[in-house]
Write a protein that binds this DNA or RNA. Sequence first.
DNA 1: GCCATAACGGTACTCCAGTTCCATTAATCG
DNA 2: CGATTAATGGAACTGGAGTACCGTTATGGC
Lengths: 208, 208
Amino acid sequence: MAGENEPGTVRPGGRTARVREAVLRAAEDALTELGFTHLDLADVARRAGVGKTTVYRRWGTVTGLVADVLLDMAEQSAPRTETGSLSGDLKANARLVQRTLTDPRQAALFKALIAAATGDTKTAAALHRFYDIRVAEWAPCVRQAVERGEVPAGTDAEEVVRAVSAPLYYRLLIGGGPLDEAAADRAAEAAEAAARAGAYVRGREKPA
Amino acid sequence: MAGENEPGTVRPGGRTARVREAVLRAAEDALTELGFTHLDLADVARRAGVGKTTVYRRWGTVTGLVADVLLDMAEQSAPRTETGSLSGDLKANARLVQRTLTDPRQAALFKALIAAATGDTKTAAALHRFYDIRVAEWAPCVRQAVERGEVPAGTDAEEVVRAVSAPLYYRLLIGGGPLDEAAADRAAEAAEAAARAGAYVRGREKPA
DNA sequence: GCCATAACGGTACTCCAGTTCCATTAATCG
DNA sequence: CGATTAATGGAACTGGAGTACCGTTATGGC
């Protein structure tokens, strides 16, 4: 995550790009294995087969490196499945999130990313961007439900998608209950029920 | 968070207790001001007016100290308000959480606590305990709603309370939208609508 | 293909988080 | 109140995270 005229901006090709790739991959591995707390930039450099001077010059701090990891992750997008019904789509989304947060390696990585974002504004912005993109990919299924009349007009599609994820992340980070398929299905059903009841209609004065 | 026969267990009175108090207060201040990332135990010792050797001996690591802060916070409980209706109670809860997470100092502290918990099992356990207690304090208002027939029998009261908080914490840590009263009210309404629809009934096979 | 220089990488250095050691203080038991 | 020793706290030490310096590599423009 280089600043204004930081190294890597004038000659971004060839070696510079290769170094970035290697360092970001190494950073993901290190975050997964060690977590945010025990991350050491010299260790990342070693894993990447790169001089530690380079890592310190281009990324500077652990949070700065994590911010760049997030920018990189935001580019690769995963396609969503389509089931035809709001219930089916939301459940598919919930299960995808649940599987991600249950996989030991991915769970560790996401925890590390979120922890890093709590301490640095730029990292937080990169995290928001990452999730905004992911949420936007799933929002269309809610808009289709609005068109089909399953859900009130004016419903905030993004907010419904976030409502599916929120309880699952709550368990991952805060509450710590089981993160199983039942939890995923409950999250999807709750979001759907709330959406049908009009809880996510934008700019109301009073509840329906 | 002393282990089996760590210092402080044989003679817990007098000075030892005073040191613990001073260190925990100083740790809260430091976490609030600097965040989890930049916390330094020597700095905490200085703030507490205590030898840094003592802090390292009794708490060892930053996450260890945070775990003890959480155990301490879990003891002091805040009473809830009662409005008589489920809608009113959940909204009161949502607004309380929203105000906490909006206050700059408290928000910083909670972010730091959650970030610390992502990296250490014991700290995570202490965090779960803290929130289990807070959730349990608010669960009765949902149980009363079940008795009044506002919500289906078999509804998991704790899960409803967690559902109110989840979207607010999602914004704080992950999504980053506005954390205002409208967001709080929406969270409360959504949880209520989902609860009425039976989304939080325990041990169902199929959705209602 | 050649030049100017952006970017990398090794080495040596600094500084402070975390440890070790031991003298001092005071909590608990009788 | 006095003895025992748990617990604290100062001071000196150590290792490694982060920095500075400078020679080497190879990118991008001509």
